[in-house]
Design a protein around this nucleic acid. Sequence first.
DNA 1: TTATTATATTGCAATATTACGATTAATAAT
DNA 2: ATTATTAATCGTAATATTGCAATATAATAA
Lengths: 109, 109
Amino acid sequence: MGLTKSEIFTEKQNEISGIAKVFGHPARVAILQYLFKIDSCICGDLVEEIGLAQPTISQHLKELKNVGLIKGSIEGTSICYCIDKENWSSMKAIISEFLNQDLNTNNCC
Amino acid sequence: MGLTKSEIFTEKQNEISGIAKVFGHPARVAILQYLFKIDSCICGDLVEEIGLAQPTISQHLKELKNVGLIKGSIEGTSICYCIDKENWSSMKAIISEFLNQDLNTNNCC
DNA sequence: TTATTATATTGCAATATTACGATTAATAAT
DNA sequence: ATTATTAATCGTAATATTGCAATATAATAA
């Protein structure tokens, strides 16, 4: 089918997997790393930086924007993207909680 | 195409996205949460617990096993799965480093 | 107005993922 | 031996994702 049965899972489970899915492509990881590295808004040069065609980058940016991890503002003829740090923090809290599940468990095998 | 261009990204970027991709489905999130919750090997009942067909669960388990997050041992007619806590820890370190990128940055916008 | 520049959208082809019925393989129980 | 149980694999259908060429849009510049 190819259609995830979201309705049988909890909201939390869908939230966690939804965030993780966005991180599940190296181009989006690379874009986020670059935005953190330059630590400012970036207008343009992402296409050269990443090495994919402009429409492809645009699509990945859209997904990052949809999930709220980045935001863009119009700056003359170009658009400036940067990390939405507030959303990044809350996202980080959700994922961290999931990752730290192991801290409350014993070793069974 | 539908084919990710892994070769243009760093090994780290591919590693991060590879792990995240596994978390990118609610069934796999649910399986991991359940394994942590019962905090022991589990033989069977995952199919009833999650609510997907047996072959589907089996496929998700395979992906979790491929990336090393769980391990299974044969126990008579059934197979016992549990979290591979050592691998979980190293995976967590990789993802945490990525998530904590924001700690070294200023607020630009 | 007409370029120019930067980004988004559309349309499409190729590949990947999700899901499940049917089958298989392996052991356990009778 | 036969039958039941459990989980993997195979085959297949449906949907999603990735990537890019072509085109559209939007804002400035000439």
